[in-house]
Simulated assay, not measured.
Amino acid sequence: MKKVSFAEFGGPDVLRLLDAEEPHAGPGQIRVAVRAAGVNPVDWRVREGQILAAHPLELPAGVGLDAAGVVDEVGEGVEGVAAGDRVFGEGSSTYAEFAVLSAWALMPEGLTFEEAAGYPSVVETALRIIREVGVRSGQTLLVSGASGGVGSAVLQIARERGITVIGTAGAANQDYLRSLGALATTYGDGWAERVRRLGRVDAALDLAGSGVIRELVELTGDPHKVVSIADLGAPEFGARFSGVAGSVPDALTEAVDLISRGRLHIPVEKTYPLRDAAAAHIDSQAGHTRGRRVLVV
């Protein structure tokens, strides 16, 4: 089978599309014929060797956590899923023609493989950081860098829970944020004052890692009400860096419910063939995404 792999830490150029042995489902796992794989910032952080404490690995290593595809192997002890089922979920080395998943759910009706591949890690992250930041119904949440995959999920989940959201993004994505129910403003010079004019901030999330933690702490008045998934230096300001996943099966269950009820939709901004994984990483690292980037197998 074909698989994207890297033998040394570094930039996108270390990624190679190689022939590899097919993986097989162990106990409690399934294997899928991958149809699409989500591209997440954690993928290129792992490739660069940034977060080895949370994601230890041995080189050479595969890439990717999220996938959607068709079940073709079911491991020992697995129930409720069979060969031929269309599923989406999380595993390892998903930038490949076959991948083993450790958490999965049946795809909701009407969802394409490309769309489904964009949900697993994004929804788990969104649910986790909303919980960690402690924001409640009736309060206001500020989301810095709100137009990407996680931001898109946060905005919709928060709206569903009665939380007002102020989102920052580039000028081109202001209408997109508003379509998801957020109060929108641009980042750049004077952004904190523009946020103040939109209202009080009870809690804040940093999704872009653009050096805004100090201002987020000032806006909330409490570093314990600030969580980042992108700035490893957040603890220097008393804020929290969140990098350890919670329950992916629970997140997938909630995702299926929200998607099925029409309360959650994350668009796919761009798709890439497997051979263009490096280009997908370059685009992901550049930011300014509206929704998700996905590899198509």
Rank of each mutant, 00 (worst) to 15 (best):
Leu216Met: 08
Ile213Leu: 05
Arg161Pro: 12
Thr164Arg: 15
Val135Arg: 02
Val135Leu: 09
Gly162Asn: 01
Arg131Asn: 15
Ala204Lys: 02
Arg131Ala: 15
Leu205Phe: 02
Ile129Trp: 04
Gly209Thr: 01
Arg214Glu: 15
Thr220Lys: 03
Ala169Thr: 04
Pro223Leu: 10
Ala169Ser: 10
Leu106His: 14
Ala172Gln: 13
Val217Gln: 02
Val150Asn: 04
Thr168Leu: 03
Ala184Asp: 03
Val212His: 12
Ala192Lys: 09
Leu111Arg: 14
Ala103Met: 11
Arg194Leu: 01
Tyr176Asp: 01
Ser152Thr: 15
Val165Ile: 03
Val122Leu: 06
Leu216Gly: 07
Asp175Gly: 13
Thr185Gly: 00
Ala203Gly: 06
Ala192Val: 06
Arg194Gly: 03
Ala208Thr: 11
Glu115Ser: 11
Leu219Asp: 02
Pro120Asn: 11
Gly170Asp: 00
Leu183Asn: 08
Gly170Lys: 01
Arg128Asp: 15
Leu155Met: 15
Val212Glu: 12
Pro108Phe: 02
Gly188Lys: 06
Gly170Phe: 04
Trp191Ala: 00
Ser147Thr: 02
Arg194Asp: 02
Arg128Met: 14
Ser144Tyr: 15
Ala146Met: 03
Glu115Lys: 12
Thr186Leu: 01
Trp104Thr: 06
Arg136Gly: 06
Gly209Leu: 05
Leu111Cys: 14
Leu219Ala: 00
Thr168Tyr: 08
Gln174His: 00
Thr164Glu: 13
Pro108Tyr: 03
Arg197Ile: 03
Thr186Glu: 14
Val135Tyr: 00
Arg200Pro: 12
Asp189Cys: 07
Gly149Glu: 03
Ser137Tyr: 11
Ser179His: 07
Arg161Met: 12
Gly181Tyr: 04
Ala117Phe: 09
Arg214Val: 14
Arg159Met: 09
Ala117Pro: 08
Ala208Leu: 09
Arg200Ile: 13
Val150Gln: 05
Val201Leu: 11
Leu205Ile: 04
Val123Asp: 06
Glu193Ile: 07
Gly209Pro: 00
Gln139Cys: 11
Leu198Lys: 03
Pro108Cys: 10
Ile129Tyr: 00
Gly151Thr: 02
Leu219Thr: 04
Glu218Pro: 13
Pro223Asp: 09
Ala172Leu: 08
Leu207Asp: 10
Ala105Ile: 13
Asp202Cys: 10
Gln174Lys: 00
Asp206Trp: 07
Ser137Phe: 10
Ser137Asn: 13
Gly167Val: 02
Glu109Arg: 13
Ser210Cys: 13
Tyr176Leu: 03
Arg136Lys: 15
